[in-house]
Write a protein that binds this DNA or RNA. Structure first.
Lengths: 126, 126
DNA sequence: AAGTATATACGAAGACTTTCGTAATTGCAA
DNA sequence: TTGCAATTACGAAAGTCTTCGTATATACTT
């Protein structure tokens, strides 16, 4: 069986693991609680399920088990982005980019960065 | 929250209603079946639930009820995009744009369009 | 009028997600 | 050692989403 798409809660946990590296439940739970209230056993259960699903791996050498993301950040975000573009923008990533650019504030630096990327793409497509 | 976020199935139905306008269940069901198998009563039930949730409205004058999207396409996509950016890219729309540009093929026309949009934004931000 | 096709109404099953209570286990400290 | 704090294990409840079977109602056809 393939590794399933992470749920909303699982994605929150993955973000913590991606950002801070392998961590015990207590740490992840504390990080989650910076944004919303999550009980300790709730976080524990979610992380145990993530191991079952293949979304995380854990080291049980210590009493406090250490959990680590089992799927890569960039590949996962690529996949989620693909699915989101398919379902919401009927597969047109450019339509989505246009909408994102239109509705979000961007700094001059960011805009320059995107322009540079576009120009690089144009050169490569020749 | 007033009107809830549409589910995956509900979004599929909304796409049909946005594209083709007010439609009976039979028509929507046929459109869904161009992409995946969906039973008639399944589509019916989903659309009835959408009316309950305020995602759609229906006209019951005729025997075949006519369903219509109750939420606007652009506002809904804006909202879904916001939530997706928050959950997957921690609120950085620009990071997502960069990733989308990097991973998807774009035609020269599309890239030009995006460049024009960026230049317009740069002018406006001065 | 009778029978057939099509539509709606409704309930419930099954899968999935999230949450939490409780028991069992382990480490530490008085 | 005894008791307390922290951890894991586990089951189950509650909510949601999707699917479908069946009953009922309505129109059409012959």
């Amino acid at each position: 069986m393939e590794i399933p798409k992470p749920t909303e809660s699982e994605l929150e946990i993955l973000q913590v693991l991606w950002t801070y590296g392998p961590s015990p439940v207590r740490f992840v739970c504390d990080k989650l609680n910076e944004h919303r209230e999550v009980g300790y056993t709730t976080a524990l259960k979610l992380m145990q399920i993530m191991v079952d699903k293949g979304l995380a791996i854990r080291n049980t050498d210590q009493r406090s088990h250490i959990y680590e993301a089992a799927i890569s950040e960039s590949e996962t975000k690529t996949r989620l982005l693909d699915q989101f573009v398919d379902s919401t923008f009927k597969g047109s990533a450019m339509k989505m980019v246009m909408q994102a650019l239109g509705q979000h504030q961007a700094s001059k630096e960011e805009l320059d960065e995107i322009k540079a990327l576009i120009e690089r793409m144009e050169r490569e497509s020749q």
